[in-house]
């Protein structure tokens, strides 16, 4: 596999993303350098591409990813991987607010902490954070799992729908309508299956699994025919 190196600097982001897409079509491994925390890098990437960002990236990196593997060597700004459907994003450092917002599939792996509202309104996929997830993480998550190995900030798992927030470590405070449940062995095995390829399995962890208390739900979701009549 050949390699394409793409310089960011002060160049126009649309031009850079077009070069990334061209390199994806050729099947090259891609290195993006001098990233300078610029926004909207690597948005809408296709299935199968392999991209390394040598530095920090700004907002919406990897947004709408449909199957590429992204590796960010330092920090990521807000809305990392927003709306992604498939693929893998790894951040070596910190990731800002709204990691994986509204994502529907794939995996995001953050080795540092995240900002607030990690996994907000996510509809599928998994977010694994080795550090601490920020304020109100999991807010209105419809589906998928947020797995935090280093604790959570205030208002954790606020207003969940059918998403799950798993936390090992301290939780500063819980959000509205959280139900903390004891996970079954099968459920822990499912989480370990997500962590295993990342080399993060540790059987000694004391998990808090958070799901919705369903007290905020204003319709009877388990009877679709009833709420479709609303």
């Amino acid at each position: 596999m050949s390699e394409t190196v793409i310089e960011v600097g002060k160049r126009h982001i649309r031009e850079i993303n077009e070069e990334i897409q061209e390199a994806c079509k050729k099947g090259d491994r891609i290195r993006v350098v001098n990233t300078l925390s610029r926004h909207n890098l690597g948005v809408g990437l296709p299935d199968g591409a392999d991209i390394t960002f040598e530095g920090s990236v700004g907002y919406f990196c990897g947004g709408l990813n449909t199957g590429s593997t992204l590796h960010i060597e330092r920090n990521a700004g807000w809305a990392l991987g927003e709306g992604m459907a498939k693929g893998m994003i790894t951040v070596e450092g910190y990731a800002g607010m709204s990691v994986g917002a509204a994502m529907i599939g794939g995996t995001i792996h953050v080795k540092g902490d995240t900002g607030p509202r990690c996994g907000v309104a996510m509809k599928g996929g998994n977010i694994v954070v080795e550090g601490k997830i920020g304020y109100q993480s999991g807010f209105m998550a419809h589906s998928g799992k947020i797995i935090a190995l280093g604790g959570a900030g205030d208002s954790c798992a606020d207003a969940l729908w059918q998403g799950e927030v798993w936390v090992a470590g301290e939780v500063s405070s819980f959000g509205v309508d959280v139900n903390i449940v004891e996970p079954t062995a099968e459920e822990v095995a499912e989480v370990d299956a997500i962590l295993e390829p990342l080399g993060l399995v540790d059987s000694s962890r004391n998990w808090r699994k958070m799901i919705s208390g369903q007290r905020l739900w204003y319709f009877e979701s388990r009877d679709a025919s009833a709420w479709l009549m609303i």
């Binding site: 920090s56 920090n75 800002g96 900002g115 607030p116 920020g134 205030d154």
Partner: peptide
């Protein structure tokens, strides 16, 4: 140049 960044993202 790459260096430590402080993100005041919390409330």
């Amino acid at each position: 140049n790459e260096c430590d960044v402080i993100n005041y993202d919390g409330p």
